[in-house]
């Protein structure tokens, strides 16, 4: 009798869940530290500069988890669990983090979904990072009164998206060098 699994199953194994925990801790800590980076940089570089340099760090949970786990839903779970860890370790931003995390994770998930979950390489990862910029700017407007003209808001989305793209690529490259 020959037993072996040819195709990768979509079910999450204990290994996948443990990997999600690893990325959740890494991104949870990055998310927490990023608050300080963001406020400091915004004071010097303005809203666009700050979005470009720091926002992507808040989206990094999705590309990290998706590049490692490579299963449908991993981007959403990675970002969301990272945000939950952030909530549990530091009251900075409180439980709204989880709401941001869910929305950003969902947007990143779309990046992989449009490739029908066939590729987990640089291209979908970059897209996933970029897409997270949209809900981030939208939630900022609701919660932090960060509202501008449509033109300004578009610029912010692009800046946040580009930032997401850059850090998503870094996350993907960091995973590439692992032994597995």
């Amino acid at each position: 009798m020959s037993v072996g699994s040819r195709k990768r199953s979509v079910r999450y194994t204990g290994i996948d869940l443990a990997l999600l925990a690893v990325t959740a801790v890494v991104s949870g800590v990055i998310f927490t530290a990023n608050w300080t980076f963001y406020y400091v940089i915004e004071a010097f570089a303005g809203p666009i500069g700050a979005r470009l340099l720091t926002y992507g760090l808040w989206f990094i949970g999705a590309p990290l988890a998706a590049s490692l786990v490579r299963k449908p839903g991993s981007a959403l779970l990675g970002e969301f669990l990272g945000a939950l860890v952030e909530t549990l370790i530091a009251p900075q931003g409180g439980i709204t983090n989880a709401i941001y995390g869910f929305a950003q994770g969902l947007a990143s998930e779309v990046g992989y979904a449009v490739f029908l979950y066939r590729s987990w390489s640089l291209l979908p990862t970059a897209l996933a990072g970029f897409l997270a910029g949209i809900p981030a700017v939208a939630l900022d407007a609701i919660l932090f009164e960060v509202v501008g003209t449509p033109f300004e808001m578009t610029l912010w989305v692009v800046a946040a998206g580009l930032s997401g793209l850059i850090y998503a690529v870094i996350a993907n490259l960091a995973v590439k060098n692992l032994r597995r």
């Binding site: 020959s2 037993v3 072996g4 699994s5 990768r8 194994t13 204990g14 290994i15």
Partner: peptide, 8 residues
């Protein structure tokens, strides 16, 4: 075979 996608 069940977890590491190997074969037996």
């Amino acid at each position: 075979n069940n977890l590491l996608s190997g074969w037996v």
